[in-house]
Each structure stands twice: as C-alpha cells, then as structure tokens.
C-alpha cells in the first residue's frame, strides 16, 4: 500500500491553487469540475510529478470550520512539506508576504517552521539531515 493522495480543506479553491502553485511552487495535476462550483483539484511537487497528490478540498462541510479553527488556534499544522533548507525557504516565503506562526527552529536533528497557507491552514516545512 502507498500513500497516493492526501488533502487539506481550503476556503477558496481558486485562491488555494494560486497560493500552492505560484507561491509554494507546486504544479496542478488534476482539475475536474464537480457540481456547480467545486472542483477535484490536486497539485504535486515538480520534483515528484508522480508522487503523492495534495487535494485542495472545498471547506464547505459544516464541521470543517470548527476543526480548522481549533487547530490553527493552537498552531497545529495539517501537512508537512520537505525542503532542502528551511531558513532559505522561510526567507523566500516571508519576502512574498507569507505569515509564519513558527520561525525556523532546530528541533533536535531536524529544522522546522510553520506558516499560514492563506486558505485556512497551517503548514509545516521540514529539513532532515542527509
């Protein structure tokens, strides 16, 4: 078994696509209309086009808001993305106006930081040794 797809709820799919592609640098993989406004919208890393897809899922479900507000309040990220250099990525994203709730910190063997994806979620970036 392999992890093929995972998802984050987003406030606005069009805005989420813009952020996840133009700001974070992912590429769109699938974009299929579902009903009136919703889309089956996934992105992948350009470094791993056949890798795990991230579904940008509409947050219309009534439970989604309470769930996400509680997690964001405590600073808990919903996903973790790997980068080569957390400090460099932090500087790049900060210059693009991205808000960090945790600046880069060495956490034992790894370095992490946490930012707001502007669509209602916190995301952690991590660099692992070797």
């Amino acid at each position: 078994m392999r992890i093929h797809l995972t998802s984050v709820f987003v406030d606005d799919q069009a805005e989420a696509l813009r952020f996840y592609t133009e700001v974070l640098g992912f590429v769109k993989k699938h974009d299929v209309p579902l009903g009136e406004e919703d889309r089956w919208l996934t992105v992948v890393s350009p470094e791993q086009p056949a890798g795990t897809e991230l579904l940008l899922e509409p947050s219309g479900h009534p439970a989604a808001k309470a769930y996400r507000d509680a997690l964001v309040g405590d600073g808990i990220p919903l996903a973790q993305f790997a980068v080569d250099d957390v400090a460099a990525e932090y500087a790049r994203l900060r210059d693009l106006g991205v808000r960090f709730t945790q600046e880069p910190v060495e956490m034992g063997p790894v370095t992490t930081a946490v930012f707001d994806d502007t669509c209602g979620n916190l995301i952690q970036i991590i660099a692992q040794p070797g």
Binding site: D74, G75, I76, P77, T101, Q102, E103, V105, E106, M107, G108, V110, T112, V114, L122
Partner: peptide, 24 residues
Amino acid sequence: EKSGQTLFEICSRLAMRHQLAISR
C-alpha cells in the same frame, strides 16, 4: 530563547529538544 510561541511549537520543543513526550 524565543517569546511568542504557539502551543504546537512548545510541544515540539519539549518533545524534540528535551525528549519530554507529554500530551498536548
């Protein structure tokens, strides 16, 4: 070391830097 931390950051620091595995 750094004032202004979320609950998540404090939990991460305790677990990763001090091996203090305490529930949130």
